[in-house]
């Protein structure tokens, strides 16, 4: 297995899918200001996906471009975590999903910016600035919705209860990352989960939300085994390139 390709693909697919999910809010935000904020953030992620998938294609060495990877793979070939493909449902669910993901992305990019692999390091360094703002934005909302009205509290607690079982997969580790760490391409991920958990504990405590007691966790996304939601995303995402191959505008 080409670990550099696989690892970069995982990062790129995470950005692509959560960016796509956020873009679904375009024109549907609860208020104009938030509509613009979510669309801005969606574009940050699509930008990251562009750089990461382009790089993945280079690592693969088979002449596939970032666009080829984004638009012309089958569902089993996408390696994003299940969390990022979960549906928006409502603003609370979207913000909770975003928060759980941003809290992982920040310490991840903080490590990857020092990767010996200069291309991964450069993308991580640029993305880290965006991610810090994303985390600030989603944390603020989780706190306000959790510690808001009775209805907002109930709904975002429910979002947390439903999404919690997708968070274990954020720290999925296999031969792909182990090989890159051993080869010195990327730094060690020691303490990543602990840092994530600390952010999560702090923000959820301030939001007066309770972490579910069940430790049962889904995984499969990193191996290409997805929830049914990915198919629907791909139908929309790939339609244009499938219907009009090579279309550009």
């Amino acid at each position: 297995m080409n670990s550099l390709f696989e690892y970069t693909l995982r990062l790129g697919d995470d950005s692509l899918m959560i960016g796509h999910r956020l873009s679904e809010w375009c024109g549907h935000g609860p208020i104009l200001e938030e509509d613009i904020a979510m669309t801005n953030i969606a574009l940050d992620f699509v930008g990251q996906a562009t750089s990461l998938l382009e790089l993945a294609g280079k690592f693969e060495g088979k002449g596939r471009s970032g666009d080829d990877l984004a638009f012309l793979r089958f569902d089993r070939d996408y390696k994003n975590v299940l969390l990022v493909e979960q549906p928006n449902v409502d603003f609370g669910v979207t913000m909770m999903r975003q928060f759980l993901f941003d809290a992982y992305r920040k310490p991840l990019f903080e490590r990857l910016q020092y990767a010996s692999n200069k291309e991964i390091a450069a993308i991580a360094e640029k993305s880290l600035k965006e991610t810090k703002y994303h985390l600030r934005h989603s944390s603020e909302w989780v706190i306000r919705l959790g510690d808001g009205t009775e209805e907002s509290h109930t709904r975002i607690q429910e979002a947390l209860d439903n999404l919690w079982r997708y968070t274990g997969e954020l720290f999925y580790s296999d031969d792909v990352d182990k090989e890159l760490i051993a080869a010195g391409e990327i730094p060690s991920m020691d303490g990543l989960e602990k840092e994530w958990r600390q952010t999560v504990n702090e923000v959820l405590a301030e939001a007066t939300l309770k972490i579910p007691e069940s430790d049962w966790q889904f995984d499969g996304g990193r191996k290409g085994m997805h929830s049914e939601h990915l198919g629907y995303i791909l139908t929309e995402l790939q339609y244009m390139q499938r219907a009009y191959p090579g279309l550009e505008w």
Partner: peptide, 17 residues
């Protein structure tokens, strides 16, 4: 101008808008 629940969110919204 814009609408926001409090001053911190107003800064965030202003940044985005």
């Amino acid at each position: 101008s814009l609408r926001a629940a409090d001053e911190e969110m107003a800064i965030d919204n202003a940044r985005d808008v």
